[in-house]
């Protein structure tokens, strides 16, 4: 039995430990926001936060997140209550086909958590693991800067749907 924290809630899944986390989340737990793109950790569509780090979950054995905290796009925010990064994405109409954007938003969230005011080259470094075939890179870069400034001005949070482990509060700060 696999046990970890998913979007703030303790979960137990009956799946072999070598199953990639992506498929445990999509097939067993039925959360579909994280996407399958390459199965080799090359494109970033499957990115989730594992203890705050943007992680390629299509090659990550689920057993390796035992007792860790996993956050998917659903845990970052939702259409009723979006995070600062998601709001910036909506405002700039970043998405085209949209398939890679969950992963892009997860990586952008991890970046801004660690570096609240990244430079262009820091954005390039942090985001170059996430491929976008529609070519939304210029808009992604602009949206990350907008989100950074919103958070710094107290106009949004990086995670709004996230629940701290062992807390039942409605919203983590």
């Amino acid at each position: 039995m696999l046990r970890f924290t998913l979007n703030g809630q303790a979960v137990e899944v009956d799946a072999p430990g070598d199953t990639p986390l992506l498929w445990v989340i999509r097939d067993h737990l039925k959360l579909k926001g994280s996407k399958f793109g390459c199965g080799m950790g090359l494109c970033g569509a499957c990115s989730m936060l594992v203890d705050g780090q943007s992680t390629r979950t299509c090659i990550l054995p689920a057993a390796s997140v035992a007792n860790k905290s996993v956050t998917t796009i659903e845990g970052i925010g939702n259409p009723e209550l979006v995070s600062a990064v998601q709001q910036a994405w909506v405002d700039a109409s970043v998405a085209q086909c949209g398939y890679c954007q969950s992963g892009q938003i997860v990586s952008a969230t991890a970046l801004l958590t660690q570096n609240p005011n990244p430079s262009d080259s820091e954005i390039d470094n942090a985001m170059s693991g996430n491929i976008c075939r529609c070519g939304t890179y210029p808009k992604i870069k602009a949206a990350i800067k907008q989100a950074a400034s919103a958070v710094q001005n107290g106009q949004g949070k990086l995670q709004v749907g996230y629940f701290e482990p062992n807390k039942t509060a409605t919203e983590a700060s």
């Binding site: 926001g33 925010g77 909506v90 949209g98």
Partner: peptide
């Protein structure tokens, strides 16, 4: 479609 595609709900 910006909201659906920014929240993993599309």
């Amino acid at each position: 479609d910006a909201m659906a595609k920014s929240t993993g709900t599309a």
